[in-house]
């Protein structure tokens, strides 16, 4: 028993950025997921979505809501992260000036996801892509 959906996210399309997280949030509100959990999921998925748009060559977000919690998987098709440890450091970013001017790329994306999720794993290979998994317990 679960709510399960998959969304494609297009690289560089800032106009659609935030649609998926808004959709997940609407599900959570309808389901009456506790406010504290909902806010953490909202922050985590929004960061993940923005990351896909800004840094990746495109990808998808899978989410599943079960009685135990909210499971988010973010998979992209490249370019992959060379140094994950560095990428997980607050304030470190490879974002272009253009993106920074839009108020993004402050280097808080991955650290924010990790801080908000109950479980966070990341795997990445340059030239292949990045695979992030977040679990939020209800």
């Amino acid at each position: 028993m679960m709510i399960k959906e998959t969304y494609q996210v297009t690289a560089g399309d800032m106009t659609a950025a935030g649609d998926v997280s808004a959709r997940i949030k609407r599900h959570m509100k309808q389901l009456g997921i506790p406010a504290s959990v909902m806010r953490r999921v909202a922050v985590g998925t929004y960061e993940a979505e923005i990351n896909l748009v800004i840094h990746s060559d495109g990808g998808r977000i899978d989410f599943a809501i079960t009685p135990e919690g909210i499971d988010i998987r973010v998979v992209d098709v490249g370019p992959g992260i060379a140094d994950i440890e560095k990428a997980m450091t607050e304030g470190w970013s490879t974002a272009t000036n253009e993106v920074r001017n839009m108020g993004f790329g402050a280097g808080m994306g991955l650290p924010n996801m990790k801080r908000n999720a109950d479980e966070f794993t990341i795997a990445s290979e340059v030239g292949v892509g990045t695979d992030i998994h977040m679990l939020f317990r209800i």
Binding site: M1, M2, K29, Q30, L31, A35, T66, P67
Partner: peptide
């Protein structure tokens, strides 16, 4: 207090089941 009128009713199992149905 929160107003839960926009939320589904019942246990979390029942709510997810109803949400699936709506989907």
């Amino acid at each position: 207090e929160p107003n839960e009128v926009m939320q589904l009713r019942g246990s979390i199992f029942e709510r997810i089941k109803r949400a699936e149905e709506i989907e």
